Amino acid sequence: MKGPLFYAKILLFGEYGIIKDSKGLAIPFNAYRGGLKTTKVLEGKAKASNENLYKFYNYIAALNSELVSFNLKKFKADLEKGMYFDSSIPQGYGVGSSGALVASIYDKYAADKITVLENLTREKLLKLKEIFSLMESFFHGKSSGLDPLNSYLSLPILINSREHIEPAGIPSQKEGKGAVFLLDSEQIGETEPMVTIFMNKMKNEGFRKMLNEEFVTYSDACIDDFLHGNVASLFTNVKSLSQVVLKNFKPMIPDAFHKVWAKGIKTNDYYLKLCGSGGGGYILGFTEDYEKAQKSLKDYKTELVYRF
């Protein structure tokens, strides 16, 4: 048995903002992927994955939802045959490792599943997102359902608001100097503690005001610029967003990267922002000159995502 592959995702813009119903833009990232496989000898990573899938099976079996039902008999039989999730997607890195797993389980075991080939109306997209939110909550405590949705559809997705999501056409890549890239913090980030910090900060009126008047304003502007190919305006807004995040989201930025973050803003060599919930994993970088950014970040691992 070898299932279809599901890709990692990158939330280019909208982290934390989408919790408060602002815009978000997520794109598939094909450099990392995962799929269901079966082995006769379960050991190492495959054994750990199989054990984790058993826990996920129990969680899904206990779900009492009218939204979705699963072929639990087949799911359990496959687990007993040695099924595991074979993935190159790094865990705790903000690129949707659990999302790809959720997408693969839905694809294989959901009854009356909504397929990628049918006409994806807004209602179907919202239903899928709701199902995936329910499923992925097993991993994060609370999930928007966006990561599995992106992985399942393998399309860029624009979140206009909680009730309005749509597939998005993003400009095709150019052979320019500019780039979006990943910067490896070389430490694991955990979503749940970061979201808890954010929710506690939201109790502060000043933080809420900043989120609405600055963070969301710049983040939404970045999305519009990116989708319309307004590169000059994009970098102006990304720089502003980077400054706001450094000032107000320090707990989500690994300590070792506070100076690196500030250096980018000061030199204009690159601008950094959170990739997912932060706290570790990848940091997302934007630069008008990727070679220059690489030299400036020569002590760190970078990985290209998109070229301008």
Rank of each mutant, 00 (worst) to 15 (best):
G176S: 15
K124M: 12
I223A: 13
D112V: 13
G278V: 13
S219A: 06
L36I: 10
H228W: 05
A262M: 08
G276H: 12
L36Y: 01
L146R: 07
F215D: 05
K129R: 14
T217A: 12
V216H: 03
K47A: 15
P148A: 10
Q91L: 14
L149G: 01
Y271W: 13
L297W: 09
S143A: 14
Y54P: 06
F226K: 04
F70G: 07
I170V: 15
V116W: 05
L117M: 03
I223K: 11
Q243N: 05
L158V: 09
I19A: 13
C222V: 07
D289T: 12
Q173T: 13
Q294Y: 14
L155V: 05
G169M: 06
L304M: 11
L227Y: 11
N204L: 09
I114K: 07
A31V: 00
A111E: 14
S133D: 01
D225R: 04
L246Q: 03
G285S: 06
L274C: 00
G229M: 00
V238P: 01
E43L: 15
E186A: 12
I10C: 10
A110C: 09
I188H: 10
S151I: 05
K45Y: 13
Y16D: 10
I197W: 11
E80Y: 09
L211V: 13
E205I: 11
K23L: 07
K298Y: 13
G189H: 01
K113T: 07
E190W: 04
A232K: 04
G3M: 06
S144D: 00
G278E: 10
P156D: 02
L182H: 00
A103E: 03
L158M: 05
Y54L: 13
S296G: 09
A293Q: 08
H258M: 01
Y32K: 00
T287L: 12
Y54F: 14
I223Y: 12
N248I: 00
N248P: 01
S88A: 10
Y106Q: 13
K23W: 08
L227M: 14
V238E: 07
N58S: 12
L36C: 09
V116Q: 06
I223V: 15
P90C: 05
